[in-house]
Design a protein around this nucleic acid. Structure first.
Lengths: 254, 254
DNA sequence: CCAAAAGTGTTATGTCTACACCCATGA
DNA sequence: TCATGGGTGTAGACATAACACTTTTGG
């Protein structure tokens, strides 16, 4: 057995009062569906380092606030929205040198909004923009710091959350058609889903969507007017991981 | 639109060089299967605050190392083991006042080991111990700081990982019987699994377990000697989230 | 031989996929 | 009326759960 360290206590050879100081920041990956595909909100950096490059919004955690509160504050400052349908912490990043100026550990948060288009337009357009996630993933748009990795992790998290908790409703409005909801899955997962089977999966399980009785207008090309639904309690936020009712199962669920 | 902040840059009204300083620590929740149930490695605190209470092992992140490296270092210092079957970051904790002495943000890591019993015994027994996770969850054993929450989150993470990636193999030895493997699922999920169906689920999907051809000794009560398996490549670590073959599916998988 | 644990077979039941078909609307 | 999307029905493929049955050991 070697050295034993304990939390809140300096390793041997350190003076406990002289712990290595870090800056702690919170970065928020804000995702939304626009023009049929997944977009992320980026801001352009005004100063060095990485001046002029795109980055995800973020800032220092302040001592009197929790990490969650810091994330909410950042989200509000960027979009004016004070309640994201989904705001989840998904990772911490502390590689040495990730910020050339000092030791910075950042905590990544994922926010899903139902359309920040109008909100972003309110800000200086040259300062903030919604860009397709695909462009970031492809490397078409280069990001400052290690923000590419952070966005990558956030997107992977959404893909998983979409399956296990059904945050899909976070991307759509208060009422929505099943086609809109299906489009979320298709865009995030990059697949084609059978509309008939999709409807069944979603409608069958009580609590996912609730019919409002109303109908939306058909598209200009015609077509039967679709039903409007609202989100059920089953997938409000962060929800129950998929693992279906394991208290019953006798075999291994695949 | 309100104030816009950017990463690595102080919010307005702050002097960038005078960022709020934090201590950054890494805490490791070390889990293992002993005596048929899930256990967590705890250390007893020698100093205030929370002197004499149980806590999870951890310590300061050092500037030149990554968070992952810090977690590996802590794990090694506590157990002498330098390669956990599973070592995953699962959360960051930064509530003000979580450490009464200073601003501390800690990053939680989960380590799964195949049996640290012998290793722990090597250390001073009054200093470190494996305690049943159930006792911690029930509150029978009280933990320092916000370590109860951290352990709670780690356990929930294991439950999910067990389903989506099959880290079950991390709990067992290099070779193992299916009964041992099944015991992991049963202990972590708190369910009873049908041995016959379990075998099929695990053996059917190529790559999960590989038969070694050898057999273990039957228990003293007799019984047919069980086959010995070793872990297949399919669930080495962190593996493929469950969501089956998303490139093919046409409906929503439930 | 008997008890115990491992491993195999079998069947009813449920879920998912694909696709055919019907419905309601704009032009 | 036709084209376009929404919504329903259904048969086959596939997966799961339950449990009876066979195998191989210790005592």
């Amino acid at each position: 057995m070697k050295t034993t360290t304990r939390p809140g206590e300096a390793p041997e050879g350190y003076d406990p009062s002289r712990f290595p100081p870090f800056a702690v920041t919170v970065d928020v990956v804000i995702l939304t569906m626009t023009e049929g595909s997944l977009h992320v909100l980026l801001v352009r950096r005004g100063e060095a380092p990485f001046q002029g490059m795109w980055a995800i919004p973020g800032g220092f955690k302040r001592p009197p606030e929790t990490l969650d509160e810091a994330a909410i504050r950042e989200l509000t400052e960027e979009t004016g929205v004070d309640s994201a349908s989904l705001l989840t912490q998904f990772g911490a990043y502390g590689d040495p040198g990730r910020d050339p100026r000092m030791n910075v550990v950042t905590v990544g948060y994922l926010a899903v909004l139902r359309d920040v288009g109008a909100i972003v337009a309110g800000s200086d357009a040259s300062d903030a923009a919604l860009v397709p996630v695909a462009d970031v993933l492809k490397g078409t748009i280069e990001l400052a710091f290690d923000h590419l990795r952070i966005v990558l992790d956030a997107v992977e998290r959404v893909r998983v959350e979409l399956e296990v908790s059904g945050i899909a409703s976070a991307f759509v409005g208060a009422t929505f058609t099943l086609a809109e909801l299906r489009a979320v899955y298709e865009a995030v997962w990059g697949v084609q889903l059978d509309a008939a089977n999709f409807r069944r999966s979603v409608v069958a399980d009580e609590g996912w969507v609730i019919p409002t009785g109303r109908r939306a207008r058909p598209g200009s090309a015609g077509g039967r007017p679709p039903e409007l639904f609202r989100a059920g309690r089953a997938w409000r936020h962060g929800g129950p991981i998929r693992r279906v009712d394991r208290s019953q199962s006798k075999g291994l669920t695949r």
